[in-house]
């Protein structure tokens, strides 16, 4: 082996990449579902994810204040039920919010050009970023997040930090890694089953293929679009809790970066394809981890964005995407 290559370091980065990749995949599903149905790059999705993590932070703070959990035990003991509840609450919150956003901002533009919808989505994204800034200004001294509204806030580990591979192992794997897989994999299976076997899922696939034909077959397209936004938002909300718990930090500006990673993942996998988004998310997580270690973390964003640009230019259908003719 090469001198610079250390197996332990490599394995650690692989684990880090897989864990972050699963989170990215969960966000990417929200992008890919919405794009598959109405061909809109839902630019605000990343920022929605950010709001979800702020809600999680607030709820954790409230739980600490009410004495439900003990701040001193953070990182030592595991609060499975709390984490589960947060995933559910933040998921529902983000799903609902996504539904409202679609109703207010995108639905009136359904017949306008694609670019006006994208511009509206960017506008929504900026509004949400501002809401996140204000949310961060709420008193959160309980968490030691500091008084500065714009500063990143610390998020406590809700599950134990103990190394599952033993105290002596260089590679660190904790319950924080396990919990990501324990949440994302069932969610992805559930989504796949839902899209494959339920009536609404079938309607979604039909609408994605051809809106007019689906409408003629009696599909309530508006309901399908609303459901898509709600489900995408739910997955983003669930991802936000996992992200905050895993990376221990929450900032009102993190939506942009996470959103771009997830969008890159969706495009890499083939936009509109659910397995593509999952694969793409894992790959992007892996690429980020490798680039952090072997290229330098200051270059990681350049690597990811270059990847995005190159895929869009040379293989816009992605890895698993269908070849699609331009509709006139």
């Amino acid at each position: 082996m090469f001198e610079w290559f250390d197996t332990d370091v490599f394995l650690q980065q692989v684990l880090l990449g897989l864990s972050n990749g699963m989170i990215i995949a969960l966000i990417a599903l929200g992008y890919t579902m919405v794009y598959g149905i109405i061909e809109l790059i839902n630019f605000a999705h990343g920022d929605l994810f950010m709001l979800g993590s702020f809600l999680a932070l607030t709820l954790v703070g409230a739980a600490m204040n009410c004495g439900i959990i003990d701040p001193a035990l953070m990182g030592a003991s595991s609060h499975w039920w709390l984490l589960g509840t947060l995933v559910l609450i933040c998921g529902i919150f983000c799903g609902g919010l996504n539904l409202v956003i679609d109703r207010l901002a995108y639905k009136p533009l359904r017949n306008a050009s694609k670019l006006s919808q994208l511009v509206a989505a960017i506008g929504v994204s900026f509004i949400i970023v501002n809401l996140g800034l204000f949310w961060g200004g709420l008193p959160m001294d309980v968490l030691g997040g500091g008084g500065a509204a714009a500063a990143p806030k610390d998020f406590p580990h809700l599950v134990s930090d103990i190394n599952l591979l033993g105290e002596d192992s260089f590679v660190v794997m904790t319950w924080n890694d396990i919990v990501i897989f324990a949440v994302t994999i069932p969610l992805m299976i559930a989504l796949t089953l839902f899209v494959s076997y339920t009536k609404l899922g079938m309607a979604m696939r039909a609408t994605a293929q051809n809106v007019t034909a689906a409408r003629l077959m009696g599909v309530d397209v508006n309901k399908v679009i609303a459901a898509t936004f709600a489900i995408g938002g739910f997955l983003g909300g669930a991802a936000s809790v996992l992200y905050a718990n895993y990376n221990s930090t929450v900032s009102f500006q993190m939506g942009f970066r996470a959103g771009m990673d997830a969008f890159t993942a969706a495009v890499l996998g083939g936009i509109g394809s659910l397995p593509g988004a999952m694969l793409g998310g894992l790959l992007i997580g892996f690429v980020r981890a490798m680039s952090d270690q072997y290229v330098g973390s200051e270059w990681t964003n350049v690597v990811v964005f270059s990847l995005l640009v190159f895929i869009l230019i040379f293989r816009p259908t992605g890895l698993l995407g269908r070849k699609q003719r331009e509709k006139v």
């Binding site: 901002a105 511009v119 509206a120 506008g123 929504v124 994204s125 900026f126 509004i127 501002n130």
Partner: peptide, 13 residues
């Protein structure tokens, strides 16, 4: 940010 965002959304609408 809010003003930029509102400008974009409202103008499009």
């Amino acid at each position: 940010y809010m003003l930029f965002g509102l400008a974009l959304v409202l103008m499009m609408r």
